[in-house]
């Protein structure tokens, strides 16, 4: 993927257009207008500029077939959501919440996998004990 950093924030119409591409794959501007624009009372020109904007933002790729372009998504919905989430995390780690940063440090430093497994075994033992108590007449 040669995409460096697509924008994580999309407008309502942009999201609707992306939803169309995620659901049904490759399409021309006319197809998108028929499926998204007409029901919303949006003109072909608006859809055309929205699709072009998404292409310029790096969210769509295109290929030319005779005189028209066919567009398809560059990112899956999951990849796009992962990208938005990474921006949220970046925003948080940028100082909006230092508590989150401390939590991360603590987990990595003090709770190694072995310690976690020991704790898990302890909890399982306590749960079994509870089941045993309830099973007794």
């Amino acid at each position: 993927m040669h995409l460096i950093s697509p924008p994580a924030i999309l407008g309502e119409l942009e999201t609707a257009v992306m939803e169309r591409f995620w659901a049904s794959g490759e399409a021309s501007v006319k197809d998108v207008n028929r499926e998204v624009g007409e029901s919303r009372g949006v003109t072909l020109n608006t859809i055309q500029s929205t699709v072009k904007r998404l292409y310029e933002k790096g969210l769509l790729k295109r290929r030319k077939v005779s005189h028209a372009y066919l567009y398809r998504p560059r990112l899956t919905r999951a990849q796009f959501q992962a990208h938005v989430l990474s921006e949220v995390v970046e925003l948080i780690s940028d100082g909006a919440s230092d508590g989150v940063l401390s939590a991360f440090v603590e987990v990595t430093e003090s709770a190694g996998p072995e310690r976690l497994r020991r704790l898990e075994a302890l909890v399982a033992q306590r749960l079994e004990g509870l089941d045993g108590e309830q099973g007794e007449p």
Binding site: V88, V100, E106, T108
Partner: peptide, 10 residues
């Protein structure tokens, strides 16, 4: 972020 969600685990 996921580790933050389970932060302060012990």
């Amino acid at each position: 972020a996921a580790s933050a969600a389970v932060g302060h685990l012990e």
